[in-house]
Design a protein around this nucleic acid. Structure first.
Lengths: 337, 337
DNA sequence: CTGAAAGCGCTAACAG
DNA sequence: CTGTTAGCGCTTTCAG
């Protein structure tokens, strides 16, 4: 079933059918005949053949880290809404499907083979950042990355400045007189980044942290993270001097820390202040303060950047910075009041 | 940049390049030359042109209800993993992007135009189920639906039998002597289904429910759901006879109900038993029992069904039933013990 | 306003 | 083992 069948059925040429399909100038009567034929035969135009000629697929490739975390989900959703309005379709792939790095390259090539009009790379694993590889991709098709790696400057990026967010948290806690602040996190680049800022700020304030102020929870971003964190914090509380505040690098660990504190008979924020990160529904549920990553804004900024590239307005790599906000829910207090 | 450029660069014909690309029989020396040319020129084969001929796009269209809920995403993730292994790509679209029904049709047509090899319809809005429309789609391409609508029988389906799950919950609670059981839910078909089973079972047990045993929380599936549920349950507790058990139709409402109970000074399960639905991380966090929807199994069953269709093993509509399991976390007790 | 024909990039016979 | 060639289904000049 193709455009030729429709042309035959309607008694016109394929060119005319094509014009009807593409809003070209066609006599109303002719148009009606063609549309009738299309409906009658349940015809759906073959977009691949069209793309082969026009060079525009109306497809965007989205490669994200994982799909089942609130970050990726909200990002993809925001991107998807905006692009669906403009009639783009989305290839969505999570790179954790296969072996990370390797998989990433594979999926990106796959996107190119599909002649996508653009690629969005959400939170890629840039541990061995190779400008060459991504650069080659970016040369062939508009590419926007969403990440928090300062060193990437030659590719369109939407950067959420986690260091700045962490800075804000520390300012808030330090201003409240806190000097003994535990840092609970799992692993990964952005976690290291937060820990650095945390350590620097404390040092600057004259109270350099000790190793036992850091709690690493390996499974801190999984379902088990709550329990693991609860146990880790409980143990640490038993063994070490009690902090006046705890920072957790995501809300799952925030919930875990909260439970550990409550179980130990400590009140929040009277005895210990708690500040978390990500501002997901979990911090909402737990009722504790958290750093908001502006997830919706990130999606919008990404789409805007990508579209301006697709429409060829600019070909130079740009960077859009977004600053996290602190969302206060009364889980911290000033030691001076 | 196309296969002709590579052929020229390597000094062979396009057919030979094609053979290299498709693992055809080629002399090692020739293959090496071609591969060198491909690498040198950063060539990515055009899959659209290939699909035009082979009729196989290696693309699957996935249409889901919403992207920002744990259900859809775990489903998509499971499907995505399995299909990525087989080198399929996924178009992922959420129908809530536009106006429901209308959008659904639009995206499905779009998939057909993209010549996807198969379509997965997750939790579609079948309120006005029109066998004709979906049937027409299914006639053109393998289609699998995931839903809980008993009346759909002419299309491949993976059905999670929520009624049976609800039945199990009621059996459990009734066996524990509970007769005054509140039912907290929001709206939607599967919610109505659960309420029906709940009412039937109670009636059969000789204790037909009264209207005030039902609490409807309109925003029960959003972030505000926790608060809304907490308030609704708190009010109801103040006004009405206290139940011995509460069932909540999802975990967000489960958390809300839990908070309302605790705030009212009631212990779980000593004073009131709590059973929730969906078994997401939230029930894990809240530590209450919940109905597990076997999300991973659903994904796998869907892929299996789709693939068997794509490979043409069977052309007859099949249905795969999955039964939810109860996950007990000690939030219910028997009134007899 | 409509039709004829070229060709997008690739694969698949069919020859050699 | 390799090259030639005919399309896949569509859009887009160019005529008419």
């Amino acid at each position: 079933m193709n455009i030729l069948d429709i042309a035959a059925e309607a008694g016109v040429s394929t060119a005319t059918v094509s014009r009807v399909l593409n809003d070209g100038r066609v006599a109303p009567a002719t148009r009606a005949k063609v549309e009738a034929a299309i409906r009658k035969m349940h015809y759906f135009p073959n977009n691949l053949a069209r793309t082969l000629i026009t060079g525009k697929s109306m497809n965007i490739g989205v490669l994200t880290h994982s799909l089942t975390n609130i970050f990726s989900m909200e990002f993809v959703e925001a991107v998807s809404h905006r692009l669906a309005e403009l009639d783009y379709r989305l290839f969505v792939t999570s790179s954790e499907a296969s072996g990370r790095e390797e998989g990433e390259a594979k999926y990106l090539s796959s996107f190119l083979s599909q002649k996508v009009d653009g690629i969005i790379l959400h939170d890629p694993s840039l541990v061995n950042y190779d400008s060459g590889f991504y650069g080659e991709i970016a040369r062939q098709v508009p590419l926007v990355m969403v990440h928090s790696f300062p060193q990437v400057t030659d590719i369109n990026s939407v950067v959420v400045d986690q260091a700045l967010g962490m800075h804000k948290v520390m300012q808030h806690l330090l201003a409240g007189g806190h000097r003994k602040i535990w840092h609970v996190h799992n692993t990964g680049f952005s976690q290291t980044l937060k820990e650095q800022v945390w350590a620097e700020e404390l040092t600057k304030a004259g109270s350099p942290p000790s190793p036992e102020d850091v709690i690493v929870v390996p499974g801190g971003d999984s379902e088990q993270g709550v329990m693991e964190t609860e146990e880790a914090v409980t143990q640490r509380l038993a063994r070490c001097e009690r902090p006046t505040a705890i920072f957790t690098a995501n809300d799952i660990m925030g919930i875990g820390a909260q439970r550990a504190l409550l179980k130990a008979g400590l009140r929040i924020p009277e005895d210990v202040s708690l500040f978390s990160h990500d501002n997901t529904i979990l911090s909402h549920i737990g009722g504790f303060s958290s750093v908001d990553m502006k997830r919706a804004s990130v999606g919008h900024a990404t789409v805007d950047l990508l579209l301006s590239n697709i429409e060829g307005k600019d070909r130079e790599a740009r960077r859009v910075y977004l600053t996290p906000d602190l969302v206060h829910r009364g889980s911290t207090r000033s030691l001076f009041s």
